[in-house]
Every structure is written in C-alpha cells, then in structure tokens.
Design a protein around this nucleic acid. Structure first.
Lengths: 218, 218
DNA sequence: GTCTATAAAGGGATAGAC
DNA sequence: GTCTATCCCTTTATAGAC
C-alpha cells in the first residue's frame, strides 16, 4: 500500500467516479468483503478502468480513506464560538462533535479504519490526525484561553479536552459503533450533551458552586 | 451464523484445540483475512476435522467471540472494594479496568467485533453485554451506595458510571485501538487513571472543596 | 482510456477411505 | 472422528482489441 502523494490532487472524472463507488462499497461491506467487481459495477465502469487509475485494491482503499478523512477534517474547521460564555460554547461544540461522531458516514469510516489499521498501519494515524487530533487541538486552545480569562480552572488543557470528549462519547458512541442502537433519539442525544457539559463544568469550574444542578434534563 | 446454545458446553479436546487456534488466527488477521486452511494448520488438524466440529467459518467465528466474551466477563467478577474510601476504590477499579481494556487480547476482540458487527449483528450485543455492560452495572451499584452513604453526590448513577469510564478511556484507548501507540508507559497509564479519578471526584464530590488539586501526577 | 474476455490463484466446503 | 485429495466458485489482476 502506498499513500497518495497529492493531498488535493485533481483526478479525472472517471477516477472520482470510481472513488465515489469504492467509498460506498468499502464503507458498507468492509475491506475484505468488498470486491473489485462490485466496485466497478457500482461505478458503472469495467474493472480494467479501475485498475487503470489505481494500482490495486490496497491503493484504492487507501485513497478512499484518505479522501474521507480529508473531508472529515474540513468539517472540523468551524468557528471557535468567539466570546460567548463557556457553557454555551461547550454545549455547541459538544453537540456538533457528537452529531458528527454518530453520523453513519463517520461510524462507517471508524469501523473500517479500526478493522484494517492492523494491516494498514498508516490508516490509524491518518484517521487520528484528521479527526480526533483536530478536535482535541481546537478544544484545547479554547479551554486554555478560557482558563486565561479566568472562566475555567484548567491545569492541563490537553487532558481537559480529552476529558470533555470522553464524557461526550460515553455509552452512546460505543453502542452505535457496535451496531446495537440503530438511531438516536433527539432526547437521548441532548441529554448526553447536557450531562457532559454539566459534569465538565462541575469539575473544571473556577469556583465551586454548591447551587449548581446535576440533572441532565434541560 | 447461529449462536451456540450451551454457554459452558463441554467440547471435545479436538474442538478446544481448534477453537484455540481459530482465536489466534481470527483475532490476529480479522475475519476476512483468516482462512480455514490457516486455522486448520495452526490447530494441527485437517480442514475436514474443523468442519466436523463447526458448521462453517461463520459458526467458528461466532464460537470464538462468544468464548472470548465469556472469559472476558469472568474477569470482571471481582470484588467491589467493600468499605474502602471512594477515591481508593475508584483508583483501583479504574486501574484494573483500563488495564484490561488495553490488553492486546481485549483490543483484538474489540477490533474484530467492531469490524464484523455490521455483518453479524449479534456480536455487538454479545460483546457489550459481556463487557461494558457488566462494568457499568457494577460501577453504577458502587456509586449508588456511595451516594447513599453521603460520600458522593450522584443524581443519575448510570450516567455517572458512564462518565467515569469515559474519563478513563480517553485518548489512550483510542490510540491503542487504532494501533498508533504500541505500548503504554506505566507513567502515562497511571497519569490517565489519576486524572480520571481526580476529575470525577471534583464533579461528583458531595461538597465542593476549593483546596483539592487538579494535577494528574501522583 | 476503456472495454470484453480470460488467466491465475486462493479459499470455503465436501467425498470417500480408514 | 479424522485424514487426503479434490471440487467449485469467487476474486484479483491482466491481455488484447478498439
């Protein structure tokens, strides 16, 4: 397996067509179960055309994962929330991020990367850098500045960002990854975000407040 | 794929021999890449013998996952810590659980189950019930009793247990799952456990203490 | 570049002897 | 129950015409 050199290489329309089809088949069936025949058929081209653009199954797989991760990363370049209060920013960021995590697309990418990271060691790193790493970095920056403004008490911003994401994912993400829960009710989603924000603020508040509620309902 | 009826069925020695070999091959190579030839060779028997004990590749795979989950579950039946102080129990439980999570065996099972849960819907549930579910249940019970004794302030014990495990897994577990970090230093391990316990106690302490430290070092 | 047709190999599953 | 040998299908990858 060799990684594609150009990050935003301009590919021929046919190549894009093949990539789109390959993404569908690979992410739906997994690497092992996906066949080049199925990909060619889904793309509406012959296998020879697929091989004219990609060296083989491995290269094609790497290409679709890299492209998916790049798109993933593009979605994570939103605004920081600016000058809003910490709780609002956390709620907004938490809702956005958990929503992205629970998307069928994101879950499919995660499953495939986890499954094949043993055989394609580069994949795990590509995924981590393009996804979790960016989220952690942005969150860490926000928490650090909030701490500088005295809005939070944070000794280790990286660890604090890690903690917020850990609180956020919780049982919901694991169940979705394992295919146990098909869909998430808006109620359960909001309750998870609210509970994560609430618990995080109780742990990292600048001055302990005894009146703060612990309830997850909004 | 059909699930094995007997939970603790007594199998012939040859069957156990095949199961052991199959576990090694499946967990190392994944379902798709593992071949029945490789399993038979690893077990030191012929393929016909494998098929004499298991209906096919699917049934064999299901059997090894179920056995692995059952063994997994057996490891989680430890003591509750009894009357020790909350912080000590959390540190002990957290250390044990994170240690189990980061075991090569546990990681391999998790990867394979995640990878194949789409094609074998029962696997995800079997894994969740035998692993995370038990941990959450035990932890939830402990937190509830600690709250009853006034040692913690917990409105929703299930959510609190979820939060502790989320804090515990953090970046470390994800990196290991993705194959980024080969081994974990004892220092990083302890720091993660300590940070999780510290943050959890700050969020769920019965009475906010302003003097408590946030540092993750011990 | 793109197609049809095919080669070459591997893997799941089984027949029949013992 | 266990083995050897084999069937049969799928899959990857390519050759050659256009």
């Amino acid at each position: 397996m060799q990684t594609v050199a150009d990050p935003a290489a301009q590919r021929s329309p046919k190549a894009e067509q093949v990539l789109d089809a390959a993404a569908g088949v690979f992410l739906e069936q997994g690497f092992g179960a996906a066949s080049m025949d199925a990909i060619a058929q889904a793309a509406g081209v012959s296998k020879a055309t697929v091989y004219a653009h990609f060296a083989g199954k491995d290269a094609l797989f790497a290409a679709i994962i890299e492209r998916a991760c790049a798109r993933h990363a593009a979605l994570l370049a939103g605004s920081d929330g600016g000058d809003a209060d910490v709780e609002s920013v956390l709620r907004s960021v938490g809702s956005d991020f958990l929503g992205l995590l629970l998307t069928p697309q994101t879950l499919a990418i995660f499953r495939v990367v986890v499954a094949e990271s043993a055989r394609f060691p580069a994949l795990g790193r590509i995924f981590f850098e393009s996804g979790p790493r960016r989220v952690l970095g942005r969150l860490e920056g926000f928490l650090r500045s909030a701490a500088d403004r005295g809005q939070l008490r944070v000794d280790d911003p990286h660890r604090a960002a890690e903690h917020f994401l850990g609180l956020l994912k919780g049982e919901l993400h694991l169940k979705m990854v394992l295919g146990i829960a098909e869909e998430v009710s808006a109620q359960a989603f909001d309750a998870t975000v609210e509970a994560a924000v609430s618990t995080f603020l109780r742990a990292y508040a600048p001055q302990p407040s005894t009146t703060e509620t612990q309830s997850a309902s909004r």
